[in-house]
Write a protein that binds this DNA or RNA. Structure first.
Length: 260
DNA sequence: ATGGTGGACAATCCA
């Protein structure tokens, strides 16, 4: 089984790139973030015509998540399930494909360390830990994969220059602590299990000139899994090809491969 | 010096 994740930065703008990538790579599930469109304008028909299933939840201009899959999901849900905050349904989509639960999140970026949005981010990660506990109970009993744009670079190797960017909303003590508390529920970093090296990144800021060739990236798109699922992980790779497309996202695809 | 680019969507907001 292959599960991919991609912050597409507008599913409508990136539709040709995504369809070409799907045709070339044929994953079982592709998790998208920042689709940036309301459900009424999500290009579902284009995916269906190409032979894919699409589940999605979005809002105008911001956020938005989707799961594109070869087979229909057995279950599908949206949001953290702890009350409507106006955006979390466009930040978490959870589908079940066979025995595997795929939780796809676009974690709030946090804006600035002294902003209310940063407090919302910390709280969001605490709510997510509670979500996992409610949905699955103990991690040891579950077969779940958490993917998405997590907007957290938890280790120094996850940033091109940790000391230079510290403290950043994606790379600072409180956010790493909140992220660790989610991971401590019982998740394994499957990305790092297969890609332990430095300079393995998934995001290069549009605003930094030539960030990709200069190696000025971040690893904020991630793949984690519960123990029963993590022991089935075969491989994880970052697809840099998609960054060579005509109008690339500032993120790229991360692909994970799993035994049944 | 408080940038830069690229989305959505129509003046800015967000990353």
């Amino acid at each position: 089984m292959r599960i991919a994740t991609f912050n597409c930065n507008s599913v409508r703008k990136r539709l040709p790139l995504i369809l070409a990538w799907l045709k070339e790579n044929r994953p079982d599930v592709l998790a998208l973030q920042e689709t940036k469109t309301e459900d009424a304008t999500f290009p579902e028909q284009a995916f269906v015509e190409a032979g894919w299933q699409a589940a999605y939840r979005g809002q105008k201009s911001y956020n938005g998540v989707a799961l594109i899959s070869r087979e229909p999901a057995e279950k599908m849900s949206f949001g953290l399930g702890d009350g409507d905050d106006g955006e979390s349904e466009a930040r978490l989509i959870h589908g079940r494909y066979g025995k595997v639960d795929v939780v796809n999140t676009y974690v709030p970026q946090g804006r600035a360390l002294d902003s209310p949005q940063f407090q919302f981010k910390l709280q969001w990660l605490r709510r997510l830990r509670a979500y996992f506990e409610r949905e699955f109970g103990a991690a040891g009993q579950a077969r779940a994969v958490w993917v998405g744009d997590l907007n957290v670079a938890p280790e120094p190797r996850d940033v091109h220059d940790s000391k230079k960017v510290w403290p950043h909303v994606c790379h600072c003590e409180p956010v790493i602590k909140a992220f660790r508390e989610v991971v401590d529920w019982g998740l394994t970093d499957v990305f790092r299990k297969h890609l332990p090296g430095d300079d393995v990144f998934t995001f290069w800021d549009y605003r930094v000139p030539n960030a990709l060739p200069r190696g000025l990236g971040w690893r904020i798109d991630q793949v984690l899994a519960t123990p029963e699922q993590a022991r089935r992980s075969r491989d994880c790779r970052v697809d840099l090809e998609a960054r060579r497309a005509e109008s690339p996202s500032d993120h790229t695809f991360v692909v994970s491969d799993w035994d049944e």
